[in-house]
Structures are given as C-alpha cells and as structure tokens.
C-alpha cells in the first residue's frame, strides 16, 4: 500500500472511531504497527489530523446551550477576498465552524451560545457591525436528527436470526 493510500485507510478508520489504536488499525489492515503509528504521527504533525473528539448527542445531555446557523452576506476586499473578514469572524469563540459558500450568501457560521439572548447580542453587537458585513440571517436550531453521520433517534432494530446457513 502506498503512503497516500495508507493515510486514506487510516483516516477512514479513525473518522469512524477515533479510539482505535495503531495496534487495532494494524491488524485491520494487516500491516506492522510501527508503520501505522508513524503514519498517524505524520498526520498529527502536519495537521491533517487536528484533534480527537467525542461525538455527543446534545439532545441526550439536555444541554441548555443554544445553537444556530448564520448566513452572512459581505463584500470581499481587494487582494484578500473573503479571507480578512473570515479571520475577524472566526476568532470569536462562539463561532464553532465557518465556511465560505457559493450561492445566495457568502459565509456560513455555526454558532453556539448559552442563551438565545447571548446569540442575539453576538449578532447585533459583533457580527452585523463589522464593516464589510451587509446582511445576516440567523436560524435557530430546534431539533437534531442526525449528527456527523449518526442518526440520533433510537431506531427499532429488527434482529437477525442468531444462526443462519
């Protein structure tokens, strides 16, 4: 397996279950453990792998945090495009993710706040007042159905027969 393919295979396994160890992965791929751990280290060092986190069902937590997505229309600046305004925005800790989008608006923010009021404050005082921001549109999240590829509602399982030919 070449280096790039090895990385792809490892990432495929880790993005599904970040707790798989290099030893686990080595068995799954039928490779030596040190080859796998070297590749993982390389990806950690060059920031291909950013972090290992748990995917949490916030619904279950009865978390009282509030989440929303905000669409932002703004004007690009000469020489730097949207990068400068993006940099200003992503430094706010309430901004969990930020993407440049094609289509009807420019930036998409995923924002987390303790209360709806907090988020209102962030939008009115911090975001909408930035020079190149023309327009914001805030959508509050009401219910989560699927998180990171995982369906959150408990689904009835039709059991397989325990022993079949």
């Amino acid at each position: 397996m070449d280096k790039d393919n090895l990385k792809k295979e490892i990432l495929d396994i880790l993005t599904k279950d970040a707790r798989k160890t290099a030893a686990d992965i080595a068995v799954m791929l039928n490779l030596k453990e040190d080859i796998v751990s070297a590749s993982i280290h390389e990806m950690e060092n060059d920031k291909t792998i950013l972090n290992y986190k748990a995917v949490v069902n916030l619904q279950q937590l009865k978390s009282d945090k509030t989440h929303c997505i905000i669409e932002v229309k703004c004007s690009p600046q000469r020489g730097v495009g949207f990068d400068a305004i993006a940099r200003r925005i992503y430094k706010f800790p309430e901004v969990k993710s930020l993407y440049l989008m094609s289509g009807g608006y420019d930036l998409l923010l995923l924002v987390e706040g303790d209360t709806m009021k907090d988020i209102g404050f962030f939008v009115a005082e911090k975001l909408a007042t930035l020079d190149s921001v023309h327009n914001t549109s805030t959508h509050f999240l009401l219910k989560r159905y699927k998180e990171d590829g995982i369906i959150l509602e408990t689904q009835e399982k039709t059991p397989r027969l325990a022993v079949t030919p």
Binding site: R160, L161, A162, V163, T164, P165
Partner: peptide
C-alpha cells in the same frame, strides 16, 4: 447476551 458468529447474512 449471545454474540453470534453464526449468521450467514450481512449485518
């Protein structure tokens, strides 16, 4: 609590 390795169909 049986773990079955006896199943001849995809999981």
């Amino acid at each position: 609590d049986v773990i079955s390795l006896g199943v001849g169909e995809p999981d």
